[in-house]
Design a protein around this nucleic acid. Structure first.
Lengths: 240, 240
DNA sequence: ACCTGAACACCGTTCAAGT
DNA sequence: ACCTGAACACCGTTCAAGT
């Protein structure tokens, strides 16, 4: 109901005092993420979360002021997975591979929880895990020799590549899933579509045909690494 | 209602035959974009569009099978603006600046219509304007000397940078708008937030403070160009 | 302090019935 | 062929009233 620009964030408000609660924010966020993962964005409703917890819908509003706030919490929760994946393994040498690990871990997380992507565009990301992730990125880049404005811009460039790549990958996968699912009445309509692409944009049609034959997983991973390598090369050449 | 993976696209279905319609798809899409621009994503409803057109809600379903399809049409409509902006001016020399112009034009369009960003993550983009835009990108890169897999990956990398950057910019702007809007009861809660950031992540807090003093427009533009330049450098070094 | 139950003001979508 | 009107099955959110 509220417009994007005036919406406030969970992270700018304190949590309420408590005495004898039966629920926890963690519980609520937990089932929220579960529902989002299994049923997708459209499958989530306050009522659905409430029934999964065996509680009435209104009860949730004691713990969370709004559905948007709940989504913010869910977003930060899955960002936490990236941090966990990082601390499990030993540190790698070199800033390039260190950043590559974070980027790769983030990408994997986004592919596990595709519903987060729509959140990123809508909600500011001020949760503790988001901040910690940003800070470790800054640390790596600062140690590498970046400072001031270049420091911010370098981190932003890498983050942008990750989110942009996963957004595109997700869109592609949803098309591919539809195509592979059933060739029922689908192919006749879509046949006309492809024929038109062929006529109007032969170059594009050729590329679509070429990449259509390839395994999507491999191709997406390849493009991701290609872009990341280009970016890191460009960054490296800007080191003082 | 339908899950992302099984949702079909407007562009894979033909339009219906017609005789004496009072409405047009263009009209409907037009007011849809208008509402999205002024009222934001949450302000849009089928009923709202219908009433703006002076028609009953059910009437829209004669022209458009679903709200998601309408959003797909709106998405491609605003992508058309990028193409228009391109053909108005004379071609620039050099593949780097040619791509820079497309990237810049796309960024400007995304900032004019921030609601598109959530769409990108959710819906595949198979509209005529999206295809035309991709094709001109391919043309520029092919002329520059890229071919086969590198061609796809190069275009993807640039597109990813644009969408990723605008997603981040949009999120940042929504925070800034909130902070600038009113310092009523806001500052007390948020003061605690910033103090916590300072304690836990001093490096991040320093960067936040530094970039907080800068004009957002300039800073976002700077980061965008920085990342793009890094990327183009990396691409250039990969030319055969 | 926490939760229920019921209500309010919305949604997207369908579908008879009209013209 | 196109549109209306009313309905169906949902929403998010609020708030008295209970414990």
């Amino acid at each position: 109901m509220t417009s994007v620009s005036t919406r406030d964030s969970v992270w700018l408000r304190g949590e309420r005092p408590h005495r004898d609660r039966r629920l926890t924010r963690e519980q609520i966020v937990g089932v929220t993420v579960e529902i989002l993962d299994t049923e997708g964005r459209d499958g989530l409703s306050m009522r659905r979360v409430a029934s999964a917890l065996g509680v009435s819908p209104g009860a949730l509003y004691w713990y969370v002021t709004t559905k948007d706030h709940l989504m913010e919490l869910a977003l930060d929760a899955v960002l936490g997975e990236v941090l966990e994946g990082l601390q499990g393994t030993p540190g790698v040498p070199g800033w390039r591979s260190a950043l590559g690990r974070i980027a790769g871990g983030s990408r994997a997380m986004f592919l596990r929880h595709p519903w987060v992507l729509a959140d990123l565009a809508t909600q500011p990301n001020l949760g503790p895990n988001a901040l910690a992730l940003a800070d470790t990125g800054l640390e790596i880049l600062a140690d590498a020799g970046f400072a001031d404005g270049d420091l911010d811009a370098a981190l932003a460039a890498i983050n942008d590549h990750v989110t942009g790549a996963v957004v595109a990958e997700n869109a592609w996968r949803s098309v591919a899933a539809r195509m592979g699912a059933d060739g029922d009445d689908w192919t006749e309509e879509a046949g006309g579509f492809f024929k038109e692409v062929e006529e109007r944009h032969p170059r594009l049609a050729a590329r679509m045909a070429a990449s259509g034959k390839i395994d999507i997983d491999r191709e997406c991973a390849r493009r991701f690494e290609f872009g990341l390598a280009c970016l890191l090369d460009g960054l490296e050449s800007r080191l003082p």
